[in-house]
């Protein structure tokens, strides 16, 4: 356990205290501020319109927070691979990988440590996104239950992206290749449910729906904590961390 924490703390510091991370974080903040203000204006219009016509009333959660979380998710699809790309690729490139592999630790400890380091860093981005609805609470009432369930979902999505990014990073010593692989992987998981249009088999449709990240995240956003969704995210993390562990282990017997 101490060696896992040792590796994750080193990676966390190595990832956060770099100009690259500051750049990614400020870019996120910029995009989120831009879209958040636009959402607020949309919300203001829709409420004034509904007062006049007596149409369906939407809560601020449905209009502002839901679209804020969707945008955060889109940002994470690209930003998380940019953070996790260094986790193993960089170690291979700078030969510090030799140090890890000749130290008395197992490859499981190495990848779990690296996963946690990447996760803590990526959760900082989720935290930045969380500040916006939090700021909203100064002016209006927000359903905290739904807000927390949404952000729990977002954190789980984020951890799945980190596990995928870690796996992609373990495959190559080129950080560019790992970013591209990571983004493609994340997008595939996101768009998997779109494929249901082409399929006539019910089984295939339900498999694709279950594998797609989007549906699981939406249940969290709606405020329902489904055990199947939690299991889905945890097993996605487990699978990709396990695969990374096998890749690291493979260099011992290759």
């Amino acid at each position: 356990m101490t060696s896992i924490l040792n590796i994750s703390m080193r990676d966390f510091k190595g990832l956060v205290f770099t100009p690259m991370f500051y750049f990614i974080a400020s870019l996120c903040a910029f995009l989120l501020s831009y879209s958040f203000v636009r959402n607020l204006i949309d919300f203001a219009y829709s409420t004034s319109a509904s007062q006049v016509a007596g149409a369906v009333k939407y809560s601020i959660h449905q209009i502002v927070v839901v679209s804020h979380i969707s945008i955060t998710n889109i940002i994470l699809i690209f930003a998380v691979p940019a953070i996790t790309m260094k986790l193993i690729s960089e170690e291979k490139k700078t030969k510090t990988y030799d140090l890890l592999l000749t130290s008395p630790i197992t490859s499981g400890q190495i990848v779990i440590g690296k996963f946690l380091g990447g996760l803590f860093t990526s959760l900082l981005l989720v935290f930045i996104s969380f500040l916006y609805p939090l700021a909203l609470m100064l002016f209006t009432k927000i359903d905290l239950g739904i807000l927390f369930s949404s952000y729990l979902g977002l954190s789980l999505v984020c951890s799945a992206y980190v596990a995928i990014g870690l796996f992609c990073s373990s495959l190559s010593s080129s950080i560019i290749a790992s970013v591209i692989m990571g983004v493609v992987f994340n997008l595939t998981l996101w768009f998997l449910s779109q494929g249901t249009v082409y399929s006539e088999s019910d089984l295939l449709v339900s498999v694709m729906d279950h594998l797609s990240i989007g549906d699981h995240l939406f249940s969290f956003i709606k405020g329902s904590l489904k055990l199947s969704s939690i299991v889905y995210f945890l097993s996605a993390c487990g699978l990709f961390v396990f695969l990374s562990g096998r890749v690291v282990e493979s260099s011992r017997w290759r």
Partner: peptide
């Protein structure tokens, strides 16, 4: 694990983290 704890290894390229 037992063996690795007894060995100090310096590879051809020193395995140092430049950001530390």
């Amino acid at each position: 694990l037992k063996v690795k704890s007894k060995i100090g290894y310096l590879p051809e390229t020193p395995p140092v983290y430049n950001d530390m």
